[in-house]
């Protein structure tokens, strides 16, 4: 075979392109083959004593500054997660006394932030945690606009700002360990396991003790289902939960628009070219001649 240098390089280049394209094109179908189930955290606010142990464990695990000792949960004060803390405890005065609530990322089954991310920096892992990847992110903050829970936090005072959010300790979960907050909770308010098992456990607790619990598992259906599930003694609007969140996954809201894109890309140019031909001067001239 007569393969000179130039042709060899050409063939090499084309093969490279083909391999590269093949990889990216296949990527989506490969993912679907996974039969892993999502993990989930069950948070039982009837057991939480508001010790902030989870806040300390989280800061330690992720190299964040220690929680402020002065800044403790108080009724009437809303503490929020920010660029330095991924989880916070708040306390609400309710019809059944003071109730503590832990707030952090809910790890939606179909996260709005990941659908919004144009670089796949926000990513729903096979294990269930929604993670953020530094090297892909361009800092556009569209995830913050899209998240119904206002979870992703941006460091406005850095020249290389990160997005800060709970990643359910994905590194630990992959190794078969518990998330830091779950492991460090002394009151047993946090449990970790397969999402299906956590829902069953939550149901069981409600059934075993209907007096104690409000009959609703927040996160079973909210935002299309999330990987953090909540139990509460009172209706969830009393403890600061966003109850206007819809039960459909948020990415559904843009689906219709995105599905229309390919059809417009096919129809528009054809239609425009057709109109252009119909109105072009040549046609008009022949009409004039006929008249």
């Amino acid at each position: 075979m007569n393969l000179n240098r130039r042709n060899f390089l050409k063939a090499l280049g084309l093969t490279g392109v083909a391999v590269g394209a093949g990889k990216t094109l296949n990527a989506t179908s490969v993912k679907k083959d996974s039969d892993k189930e999502f993990y989930a955290i069950l948070y039982d606010s009837t057991r939480c004593a508001g010790c902030q142990g989870c806040e300390w464990e989280c800061a330690l695990q992720h190299g964040l500054p220690d929680p402020d000792l002065e800044d403790i949960p108080e009724v009437g004060k809303i503490r929020k997660t920010d660029e330095n803390r991924r989880t916070v405890i708040n306390v609400y005065s309710t019809s059944k006394g003071d109730v503590y609530v832990k707030n952090s990322c809910k790890h939606c089954n179909q996260p709005a932030c990941a659908a919004a991310c144009l670089t796949q920096a926000m990513h729903k892992t096979e294990e269930g945690p929604v993670i953020w990847r530094d090297r892909k992110c361009m800092g556009c903050r569209y995830c913050m606009v899209s998240c119904p829970y206002d979870i992703p936090k941006f460091d406005y005072h850095s020249s290389n700002p990160d997005i800060q959010k709970c990643d359910m300790c994905w590194d630990r979960v992959k190794e078969g360990k518990l998330p830091a907050c779950v492991e460090g909770c002394p009151a047993g308010a946090l449990s970790f396991g397969l999402r299906r098992d956590m829902i069953a456990e939550a149901r069981k607790r409600i059934n075993d003790n209907p007096e104690l619990y409000h009959d609703h598992i927040y996160g079973e259906h909210e935002a299309g289902g999330t990987s953090v599930l909540y139990l509460s003694p009172v209706p969830f609007e009393e403890i600061g939960f966003n109850t206007s969140v819809m039960n459909k996954p948020y990415p559904e809201l843009t689906k219709g628009f995105l599905y229309s894109v390919p059809s417009i890309f096919v129809l528009w140019p054809a239609m425009l070219l057709g109109i252009q031909k119909a109105t072009s001067r040549k046609n008009n001239q022949t009409e004039d001649e006929n008249e």
Binding site: T24, A114, Q120, A121, Y142
Partner: peptide, 9 residues
Amino acid sequence: NSFGVSSVL
């Protein structure tokens, strides 16, 4: 390899 094709952005 970071195409977020499901994103409007």
